[in-house]
């Protein structure tokens, strides 16, 4: 009885959508919402779609670029630095970096749209004008840099928090022992801290790959995938095919087929994480056998 609402919600909004996405991928459904099955038509179309190779490359570059530069490397640097300085200041910086994650996406996007504004009212162009230079249309000139930095700043905070808590969990005896033995800060990090947090490092890498692969909120808000699909990633492409006002076609069938690819990856990956990160430990049986 206690479980029913939970099961219902999970069924309705997780399991059913997975099935529907997969089935819809085999139809040519449009704004009339009719189930016309077209077999593998959408997948053939995908292989012919001149945009797909570009989108695929975009997706890979975006995912692994952001992951490598920000979510892992920068997150790690932030964690190492904020745990090496005074506790209170470290906490302040971690809180500061966490703020974007809890900022409503539209507000976060608004801030970046101001910073990157092509007019002279934006921050960067304002500074350029002050130096006697001409304004630049940052977003259309450097769509890649923009989406990697904007997503990376949010992405880095997750790694930062996980790594920082892992670093703080290292018994200080280890670090003291190393210090008595003459280790410098860099040697401490290299020989003791990094080997001891390799598990969280792997976890973040795996977990964030999946979230970057499938998230597109900020790209949609800031570059909208443009200019001319230059910063459009797979998940955003699927979204635009279904809902974009510009395309105006509401190609639900094709979009669902595109999404099916991600759902498939997501399913396999989440099962893999579950196996890999020993979530099984959480499944110990209960010890009271009455109800």
């Amino acid at each position: 009885m206690f479980l029913l609402p939970g099961i219902l919600l999970i069924f309705l909004f997780f399991l059913a959508p997975v099935v529907i996405t997969a089935v819809m991928g085999f139809t040519n459904m449009d704004y009339r919402f009719q189930w016309n099955f077209v077999g593998f038509g959408n997948f053939f179309r995908m292989s012919d779609d001149f945009l797909v190779p570009k989108i695929l490359v975009n997706t890979l570059v975006y995912t692994f670029g952001t992951l490598a530069i920000f979510n892992v490397t920068f997150g790690l640097i932030l964690a190492l630095l904020t745990t090496s300085i005074s506790e209170r200041v470290g906490l302040f910086f971690r809180a500061l970096w966490l703020l974007p994650r809890f900022t409503p996406p539209v507000v976060y996007a608004a801030i970046w749209l101001w910073i990157l504004s092509p007019t002279r009212n934006g921050l960067l162009n304002g500074l350029r004008v002050a130096m006697g230079l001409n304004p630049i249309a940052w977003i259309s000139e450097y769509p890649w840099g923009v989406i990697i930095v904007t997503n990376g700043i949010i992405g880095a905070s997750m790694g930062m928090l996980i790594f920082a808590s892992a670093i703080k969990a290292i018994p200080r005896d280890y670090l003291w022992a190393a210090r008595v033995d003459g280790a410098s800060w860099f040697q401490e990090v290299r020989h003791i801290v990094l080997p001891l947090i390799r598990w969280p490092l792997m976890f973040i890498t795996a977990y964030q790959t999946l979230s970057l692969l499938t998230s597109y909120e900020y790209i949609l808000l800031i570059t909208q995938g443009g200019p001319f699909h230059a910063s459009e990633v797979w998940s955003l492409y699927a979204y635009n095919k279904a809902f974009s006002a510009y395309a105006g076609t509401y190609e639900f069938g094709y979009a669902a087929a595109l999404a099916t690819v991600l759902v498939l990856i997501g399913t396999v990956a989440s099962i893999a994480y579950w196996k890999m990160f020993r979530f099984r430990e959480m499944m110990a049986p209960p010890r009271i056998e009455v109800s």
């Binding site: 997780f14 997975v18 996405t21 999946l210 597109y216 909120e217 979204y239 999404a259 989440s270 579950w274």
Partner: peptide
């Protein structure tokens, strides 16, 4: 761990 956003459609 599943990316729910892929289920939007």
């Amino acid at each position: 761990a599943f990316p729910a956003i892929t289920l939007l459609i």
